[in-house]
């Protein structure tokens, strides 16, 4: 069955159609959430909460965008709301712990941890999310604006400022590494 047919059946209340839609989109949604939370456990939890909201609001889905984009919109707003409500803007220490786990995870698979990820993780959510949506998923500024209920101009400036911060962070990191290498070679 195609996605369109599944959506029609789901709107009629077909549980199996709902389940198939969710199963097909689950990896995409979780991977998106991992990128914005940098935390696989939180990402899975949020994905399941997103799907629960989806069951409630399927009647509002107009089919103009892809189902996966709609899921991303719900997940993004849910994540921002939860952060705002609980005011659990994680301290840098806690965030560092999350990065360490992620870094360990990647290194255990013989993958190098990218400094841009650390720099990205230091950004506020409202800046990190548009960068991920723009530069990884290729959404336009207008689409991101609609997803996050902000103007496209705001999205553009957030993305630009965010990338400038990442660039500065990378430059700083490069200089520190250069200095360390210089000290080693002088010894």
């Amino acid at each position: 069955m195609e996605e369109k047919d599944l959506i029609v059946s789901a709107k009629r209340g077909d549980q199996l159609a709902f389940a198939m839609l969710f199963k097909n989109n689950y990896p995409f949604l979780v991977k998106y959430l991992i990128k914005i939370t940098m935390n696989p456990d939180a990402a899975e939890e949020l994905a399941q909460e997103t799907m629960a909201i989806c069951v409630e609001k399927i009647g509002l889905f107009n089919g103009k965008s892809k189902f996966s984009s709609w899921l991303i919109t719900i997940a993004t707003n849910l994540y921002i709301d939860q952060k705002r409500k609980s005011k659990r803007e994680k301290s840098w220490k806690a965030q560092e712990e999350v990065f360490r786990r992620m870094k360990w995870h990647l290194e255990s698979r013989n993958e190098e941890w990218n400094d841009a990820l650390s720099a990205l993780g230091k950004l506020k959510d409202e800046i990190r999310i548009p960068i991920v949506l723009k530069h990884y998923y290729g959404y336009s500024y207008e689409e991101i604006g609609k997803m996050m209920n902000i103007s496209s101009g705001t999205v553009k400036s957030r993305v630009h400022n965010g990338i400038m911060s990442v660039r500065e962070e990378l430059k700083l990191h490069g200089e520190q590494e250069g200095a360390a290498a210089g000290t080693r070679s002088s010894r």
Partner: peptide
């Protein structure tokens, strides 16, 4: 910087495994 970000995100995409539960799990959730 954009290239570095894209590469980093690509690494996450490819190397963080995601376990997808079976259909029954999603039916129960619904």
């Amino acid at each position: 910087a954009v290239k570095e970000i894209e590469d980093g995100l690509e690494t996450l995409e490819e190397n963080v495994p995601v376990y997808t539960p079976d259909l029954q799990f999603f039916e129960n959730l619904v």
